[in-house]
Simulated assay, not measured.
Amino acid sequence: MAEPAPLTLEDLDALDDAAFRAHVRGWIEANTPPELRFPRRRLHWRENRPWYLALSRRGWLAPAWPRAHGGMGLNATRQLIMIEEFERWGCPRISDMGVLMLGPLLLKHGSEAQKRRFLPRILSGEDIWAQGYSEPNAGSDLAALRLEAADAGDHWVLNGQKTWVTFANDANWIFVLARTDRGAKKQEGISFLLLPTDSPGLSIRPILNLDLHDEFCEVFFDDVRVPKDMLVGEVNRGWTYAKALLGFERVAIGSPRLSANGLAALMRLAQRMGRAEDPVFLDQYARFRLELADLKALYESFTAALRRGETLGPDVAILKIVQTELYQRITDAMLELAGGHAGLLDPMEDALHPAGQFLLARPTTIFGGSSEILRNTLARGLLDLPA
């Protein structure tokens, strides 16, 4: 298929939604590296780099960012169209911590110098970011974090540990929450800092997961120096910024992409196993499709709120719960349908990998806030139930 002629952002604005979708679909089909479609695991930077840079050159890397800072400035409907087309074609997830998480935070709370320094380098792929939040004793109870940042005049000195840091072994920068006031209450005395991963005293150790993939890492800080201008916002206000960033993360984790890809794989598996016309399977598949349609509508409502510049409330947890639990149910169905193929660590024919999808789905209800903790948050924050 020939690549559609390049259109400016103003040209895209002039298209109706159907024409916009057709243009996005044509470009994606012409430009996605074939070997990266429907990956069986999340890809390292060295693997997803060609796709990241292709999106960057096209100007499509950051659909939600304002155009003044290199984004597309799309409304929620157009963002959802792009997500749907990426999902339909099986495009790989890029190394997106900078685009989805840090970028929006810097746009809202960063200094002008930080915006000028970091935002263009995210878009160019020069800086790949990791998120340093969780610690061995501060996961769902993130405010219990103990990474210490001691004030040493013109810099901070960091000592402590972070864990479950996604692809820290790929990143050249990391943003962390650190305790800058040990005497303050848990949610106070926390600051938001930026530092390169090659800082003296910083070390990274990969963690192999159940399918022997090193997606997560531990990061250790031993007298790591961080200049004072690498503080985002105000000292001891990091928890406030973290809550905003967790809102961005829960929107990202709540994207319909995983469930949509899982559902597409479920149908391909049913065809492979000769069950695609089975009434029992079709009933289950139809229910999953309806749940996915509900998830997409829910997702669109939250992306629309972000686009309007609104602060997300505790209700954003609903999105993360719905998406991750739907994805787990879809992969449960895949494992049952796969029969004797369910225990294989290697993919079947047609890149189908029921065991891999099942394992990928297991931690989704834990990271970004466990479903149990988020239900407590919803009970207190929305229903005003007692703690």
Rank of each mutant, 00 (worst) to 15 (best):
L263S: 05
D170K: 00
L383C: 12
H44C: 01
K228R: 12
E47V: 08
R78G: 13
F175P: 00
G125K: 04
I174D: 01
V235F: 00
L119T: 03
P120D: 06
P63E: 09
I190M: 08
P196A: 06
T311V: 14
S255P: 00
G339H: 01
R205E: 15
G233E: 06
V176K: 02
G59L: 05
Y285V: 11
V316F: 07
L202R: 12
L195V: 12
L158W: 02
G356W: 10
S370P: 14
D141K: 12
R40E: 13
M72P: 10
P120H: 07
G262Y: 13
P386A: 14
A252Q: 03
L345R: 11
D222M: 04
L123K: 05
Q328A: 04
P347K: 02
L9E: 03
E3A: 09
A171P: 01
D181A: 08
L158I: 01
N261Y: 00
G343Y: 04
G201W: 03
A22K: 13
L337M: 15
N48L: 00
R307L: 10
L36Q: 11
F221A: 06
A317K: 07
E325P: 03
G139V: 14
A242V: 00
T180K: 03
L258P: 00
G313K: 15
R380D: 13
H341E: 15
A171S: 06
P136L: 12
T377C: 15
K186T: 11
V232T: 06
G356N: 10
P206L: 12
I207R: 13
V280R: 13
E349W: 01
R93A: 09
V251M: 05
F38Y: 10
H23L: 08
L158T: 04
K296R: 13
A305W: 07
I321G: 04
L263V: 07
G71N: 01
L326N: 04
V322A: 15
A149N: 05
K320I: 03
A76F: 07
P4Q: 05
Q161V: 14
